[in-house]
Amino acid sequence: MESRAIRLESEHDIVVARGEVRAMAVALGFGLIDQTRLATVASELARNIIKYAGRGRVIAQAAEHADGRTGMRLIFEDSGGGIPNIEAAMRDGFSTGRGLGQGLPGSRRLAHEFQIESSPARGTRVTVVRWR
């Protein structure tokens, strides 16, 4: 199955990203609620990139579990300054910007797998997977 990269360079790309992620979720056979979860994760994490790193990209791809289940993997990458305190950023209500602080912890709850790597030198990569 395909893998697509969606560039995130302006606020409008957040809308594009969540639309494309939803379309791919439909193509992968996800039901309506999961489509909505994936589109919402895409919106939250794409906005984080625009807001904190300025630009980056999201890669959307089909995923396959060892037990045969299929799903969707979203990889959000930027080369911004990284997240200084990941542990704090993962807490509900924590925000260094004007956000509600729901982006990261909320996205983790909407996904089955959630991984975050961040450093000042390399930027931030958030990988989420939702299985069908």
Partner: peptide, 14 residues
């Protein structure tokens, strides 16, 4: 609010 949206809102913590 659509049901799928309501479910997602709650999971998101809003």
């Amino acid at each position: 609010i659509q049901p799928a949206v309501a479910i997602t809102l709650v999971e998101l913590g809003l």
